[in-house]
């Protein structure tokens, strides 16, 4: 059971990184991105590419980040003219286009089959590899969190929040909104791709089913439930949601419910959790800290 706990905690750390990425976009800058999972996918397929081409596995990371950066910039470009809800739909559409293309292009991406047999990270450390990986992911999560905190507490962070709250005012003060958007997308895409790369080498398998839109919505639920624009909050949200989702099968076993219960319960946890928080506690469990001791 302890091994399973390590497994769930590891995945939760990776989701935490993704939640931080989305938080930068949606929480701090007001960019309603529904195509986040495609950025994650750039990371996973970057790893797959390295494996397929016979490169050293670590080369998959820059490959994935490069692809994600391009995609992120494309999203940003779209955002110039569109208001937030339309941009959300546009990013969702693009993520779906990418997923469908991957599913059909067998030669390039392994198609619906995906690419399996990726090298498992720290495989040489068995039987302690699980704990080693968890340790690494915790360190990565902490580093990304530190980075995000520094970013949002800096002057640039202030401009992000201004763009979210009063875009007209920001423009009138001379802020280049397009540049802010581009930078935020680049940074958060790189973070998302990093999470994808680590995930690919954890699961040893990369497939288009990992990129379906419910995955993006899951990450959204982590941000909204955890606390919009509160980095610690979204990490808490990630852990809460991931543990809830992972332990559903055990509840099913304990209460002897049919197999469909698992999928339905997960949908209700994400959808119901999202809706409940949106209606009654839209700021999330850990609301954004406005103001604060250093006068920002």
């Amino acid at each position: 059971m302890f091994d399973f706990f390590i497994h769930v905690a590891s995945i939760a750390c990776l989701y935490g990184v993704l939640a931080l990425s989305l938080n930068l976009q949606a929480g701090f800058t007001g960019l309603v991105n529904f195509g986040l999972i495609a950025l994650f996918g750039c990371g996973t397929y970057g790893a797959a590419l390295a494996s397929g081409m016979g490169w050293h596995p670590l080369l998959g990371l820059p490959a994935g980040i490069a692809m994600a950066a391009l995609l992120g910039l494309f999203y940003a470009r779209l955002g110039r003219k569109l208001s937030s809800d339309y941009w959300g739909i546009a990013t969702l559409s693009i993520a779906e286009i990418i997923r469908i293309s991957i599913t059909n292009e067998q030669a390039l991406t392994g198609g619906a089959q995906g690419i399996s047999g990726l090298p498992l990270l720290f495989a040489g450390l068995k039987p302690y590899d699980g704990m080693a990986r968890l340790a690494l992911y915790v360190v990565v999560l902490a580093l990304v969190w530190l980075f995000c905190q520094r970013l949002v507490k800096s002057a640039f962070g202030l401009s992000m929040k201004l763009m979210r709250e009063e875009p007209q005012l920001a423009r009138s003060l001379g802020y280049d909104l397009d540049r802010i958007r581009r930078v935020v997308m680049l940074v958060s895409s790189a973070i998302a791709a990093f999470a994808g790369f680590l995930y690919a080498h954890y699961l040893t398998f990369v497939g288009p089913d990992q990129l379906v839109s419910p995955e993006t919505f899951l990450i959204w639920s982590m941000v909204i439930i955890g606390g919009v624009a509160n980095n610690r909050g979204v990490i808490a949200g990630a852990f809460l949601m991931q543990f809830a989702m992972a332990y559903v099968p055990f509840i099913k076993d304990a209460l002897e419910l049919p197999t469909d219960f698992v999928a339905a319960a997960r949908l209700i946890i994400v959808g119901g959790g999202l809706l409940a928080f949106l209606l009654w506690r839209p700021k999330g469990l850990f609301p954004e800290k406005v103001g604060g001791s250093n006068g920002r």
Partner: peptide
Amino acid sequence: SGGKPQTAIDAAKKLVSV
């Protein structure tokens, strides 16, 4: 396995580690 590779691997992880 839910008929999907992802779920199949998760199921295997449970069998192997739990």
